[in-house]
Design a protein around this nucleic acid. Structure first.
Lengths: 218, 218
DNA sequence: ACCTGAACACCGTTCAAGT
DNA sequence: ACCTGAACACCGTTCAAGT
């Protein structure tokens, strides 16, 4: 069920290698799994240790606190997120910046919907408040720069309604995407009469409405 | 510092009334305060009991679990939220539905920014998943109906760009508002170069951009 | 009817001691 | 250098016993 690393060469039952192959890695994976099973709050250092087959104190050789473990988990989740976003943009049409923005938004939403626990760990402010998260910050800065470029490209091509401030458009777009992802995560959609299967279609319409409001009249 | 109810008629020090005046009420207030001090996760039944001057088991006469207490806290917070929203709409111009929508959004955001812990308890899906929250559901349904009416009024007055689907506009608007409130709560704005004092102005520009994209061209 | 206080099974975290 | 296992101070929750 678990214990992905190490082939366990010991012939006795209960191999229990005194020195774990890569405990740090195994703890992060266990924590990710715990988050999937019961949400971020269900991640416990003790349970992760248990699943790694290790004593309760062992994780603290690798993470100074539960928060530090959660930060490592967030960084791993962010890495996967980033990979998926990049893939979605890879096969989006070049030279159509607004189309690409829409793709980006939809990929963002889809990943958030399919990995709610990981998405919550990445995005919720709690825990690792500050800027200890070098990787997280870098990734985020890159995504921000990407949307900035795409909007600038659209503006340069005269595709935007005159008078639209780029930074405002950027943040409005992000708030829309994050809002939709969060509404889904926080189970708001049933109240708004949107069934789970309809969320993605709804999101696409929302993006279209936003982008149509942004573009220059024909 | 605490213990708002009961005047304490006992002449001895440590009044410790065996039967607490309104323990339920006092526990909810203590929990709200704990949330303000350390966020939703910092709310503990034991600490609330301690602040109420009561034994660890006592709260369970009034709430069957921590979740039930949190639900009561959410309902109280929602009540306050609702009151403030209503006040904001009271002095907004009648007959200008889009203006009123903007007011609504700004009031929503301002309350969320000033009461982050309470807002998080109300809006985060975790804990009281289902529809145990009769009051919460009712309040929410009312706010949803309100935005629906305002949009319908705008459409009836020909203020909306033709082809705009009302439900899409409604959900897009909500996602924008919720997204901005959440970005603030989850401390995303610094990454986007928006300083705390600038958030409200930024939000207003975002609303204007959205609403301008919605209105019929002159 | 409401509260106490001890109990149980959990946490996160520390630290001497083992290998 | 890394892990164990006991310990400490916390939780949520239950339950007999008190008033």
């Amino acid at each position: 069920m678990s214990r992905p690393a190490k082939k366990a060469a010991s012939p006795r039952r209960r191999p229990a290698p005194y020195h774990h192959g890569d405990l740090r890695r195994v703890l992060i994976d266990a924590a990710l799994q715990l988050a999937v099973e019961g949400g971020p709050d269900a991640v416990s250092v003790r349970e992760a240790a248990r699943r790694a087959g290790v004593s309760p104190g062992a994780p603290f050789r690798h993470f100074e606190s539960r928060d530090a473990l959660m930060l490592a988990v967030a960084e791993e989740a962010q890495r996967r997120f980033r990979t998926e976003i990049a893939a979605a943009l890879a096969d989006a049409p070049q030279g159509a910046p607004l189309q690409r923005l829409k793709r980006l938004g939809l990929a963002y939403l889809r990943w958030a919907a399919r990995n709610p626990a990981h998405f919550e760990i990445i995005s919720t402010g709690r825990a690792f408040d500050h800027d200890r998260a070098a990787d997280l910050s870098r990734d985020n800065a890159e995504m921000i720069a990407m949307t900035e470029q795409l909007l600038a490209e659209a503006a340069a091509k005269g595709q935007l309604r005159p008078g639209v401030d780029l930074k405002t458009a950027q943040i409005t777009g992000r708030a829309l995407v994050y809002g939709l992802a969060r509404m889904n995560l926080d189970r708001h959609f049933p109240r708004w009469g949107v069934r789970p299967e309809a969320v993605e279609r709804m999101a696409e319409q929302a993006f279209d409405l936003f982008l149509d409001g942004l573009v220059a009249p024909a």
